[in-house]
Write a protein that binds this DNA or RNA. Structure first.
Lengths: 227, 227, 227, 227
DNA sequence: CATGAATGAGTATTCATTCAT
DNA sequence: GATGAATGAATACTCATTCAT
């Protein structure tokens, strides 16, 4: 029961912070969404800001762990980056609320908490940077401004959280593959889509976030974006 | 004096809404930033929400006008999209606060205001969609999922507002050219950078936003992002 | 405790609204009078206007119920009106704050609440109108302008709330009897004072308003009005 | 022009204070109704409270003067009181806003201003008291509680300001005559309506308030109260 | 004569948080 | 574990009033 409540609070916070922003979400909103009184809320959380910080830290830790799992030991920089892109896109598609909170609510953090979060984010981006640099060093990638390109690709992939719908025409794998292809093109590198380990990415996302995924299952109907 | 104050309020709101979010910005913050008492603020604005809505509407109207100016009458879809990309990137680089407010604070709008803003955004995106569709129809572009690619590119370009610094190593033109190149690659289309009318984009941004631009001037020193 | 506070808030509101008017009473005044912080006030009320509307509605419902109790089943229109007058006067003497709020603060109500209150007031006045009309039809009453006379009598009786003091020389019964006599004279009808059921009126007032009445007890000393 | 504005302010204040109460009327409401900016308002008034006090004092002075004019030198107490009643009713019918402000907004006055106003009110009521006492002494009036009866009659007559409409079926003279009759009945004194000097009352009201009256002209159509 | 600009103090209401039960 | 009660501080916004122009 306690665990249940704790999770309900966490889940409510993620959804509300994503939808209305940290400052736009009141403690009463949280209580209502978690089916608890606002006083009871405080059995399961510290302050509202600690709740936010916990969500962000945990989300980034999961992303970082997942990224390590899908990129570690992959020698080919192209595949390494491809997996990173696929994972990032899948994560943002499957957990849009968590990722939007991470991406949009840093400003609401205290200086101390911000430091932690920014550090995690930097560690994560380093994986991308290393893959890109390695690809350039190996002559596989071609881009005049690696850092700019990295930022461009990260933003492109993070944007998925803002528009992807699981009820749309794309499966997770199709989505991830398309973005991996876009990334490779951006880096001047012909399609290696067939060699991506999408299943591994899916499995990792599923494990790290403890969610079930519909896998490669077909589309679920007309979504909010046309194709 | 009145005009001055009105503009100070608007400018303060843009900066604060961008930095701390609409709900994170108090009327006292606004007053302090505008060097006015909180009561005096109300000589120059309606409600706080109307202030936000005004900023968003005006920003989108300017973007839409600018986009029409740089894309209208450009027959080649590649050049048309290239100009749209360059303009979008320049706008987000030059006016990062306005564009971040537009991109991040829609949730704070009332239903009525939201409708207006979403309509403007849709009109704007239509210009991109038409250029991409025309490019595909003409055989110039190659992408399996035009709509997904469009969203990916838009997010990629909008992200510029989150990290670009005018004090960094890239000039506006270099930035815009790089993103145009990324877009063309994403659409499977060889570099046409040389034919982009970057000067026209710069002029339009400058006029529409009534700001002076450093033009193609060299880099200003080390920025917050490495290259 | 909760009930206590709720009642304290209601009682404070009645007294203050009566004395200084709705708009003249601040939320801080209410809080102070209810011995609560202004924030705590909101545990026991909705908005300030809902508090007012609740007071007015409840007061009118009680008055209407009481009037029905003392006039229902009384065949003789003279006695029926006499009882209505006695009840009205007693109510205004015993609950001057509630009745003054009802009589003076309608303008502070929102359109919706106003409708409800006016409807109740109309229902109540209908009892008077019916008794007067019946008395005329029966030849017991004689007045050229029944509607005008009704309004005149109502205002005359309501005025009691503005000047009567329980510490004055008149008991409730004496007051009520005097006004019943005035009403009968106004309707050209010889004194029937002896037949009025003042005790029933007193009992009904006492029950409906849940107050103890000194009954027919003698005067308590010199009051604010001379006799 | 100045005089015009001053009168517009006064007129606006009377109407608004009567309709929404002193505390319910903002300085901006006054400015709008007087077609002036809120700053300009202060060319024609002191503080808002002084404006109210001025209105109340002046209204009471006019009423007192008028009452003196219609009752002075009238030997018969029945006629004297009859004239006072007729004048009071006419005044409340013709100037409902002024009289309602006087009757309802005393609580908004400062202690000093309240003293003046209460003194004037007492002086005025003394005229009624003297007439009633004289009538009793002369054996013309019969009432057990002269003071209570006086208060009852005053409230009855003042109520006219709350419901009379000049567009209703009663002319001023009919209204005044009816109330004089009610008063006489209340005082146990047969009809002396025919001897009332209604024309004199009308003239005095007209002069004192500087208004034109439709005189005894017929009814203007269906009004808000039936007869 | 008229007003836009300005504001300190105030408005009603909500905030996140604590605590006794 | 759960919550009704409570509140100091904050919220967005309005008040009556002044004054320079």
């Amino acid at each position: 029961m306690a665990v249940d409540s704790r999770e309900r609070v966490r889940a409510a916070a993620v959804k509300l912070f994503a939808g209305k922003g940290f400052h736009g979400t009141g403690i009463r909103d949280l209580a209502q969404a978690a089916k608890l009184s606002s006083a009871s809320l405080y059995h399961y959380m510290g302050t509202k800001e600690e709740l936010l910080a916990g969500i962000m830290r945990e989300s980034l830790e999961r992303l970082l762990e997942a990224a390590t799992l899908v990129s570690g030991g992959v020698a080919d920089p192209r595949l390494r980056l491809g997996n990173l892109v696929a994972l990032h896109v899948m994560t943002h598609a499957v957990q849009p609320d968590e990722t939007r909170v991470v991406d949009n609510e840093v400003h609401a953090l205290s200086a101390v908490a911000k430091r932690t979060v920014v550090k995690l984010r930097d560690d994560y981006e380093l994986l991308w940077a290393e893959a890109i640099d390695a690809g350039i060093a190996a002559g596989a990638f071609d881009t005049a401004r690696p850092a700019v390109t990295r930022l461009a690709l990260l933003e492109m992939c993070s944007g998925v959280a803002r528009w992807y719908s699981p009820r749309g025409p794309l499966t997770l794998d199709q989505l991830a593959a398309h973005f991996a292809e876009l990334a490779m093109r951006a880096l001047g590198c012909a399609g290696i889509g067939g060699e991506l380990d999408l299943e591994r990415c899916r499995t990792v996302v599923s494990q790290v976030w403890k969610v079930k995924l519909r896998g490669t299952g077909g589309p679920g109907g007309a979504g909010p974006y046309p194709d």
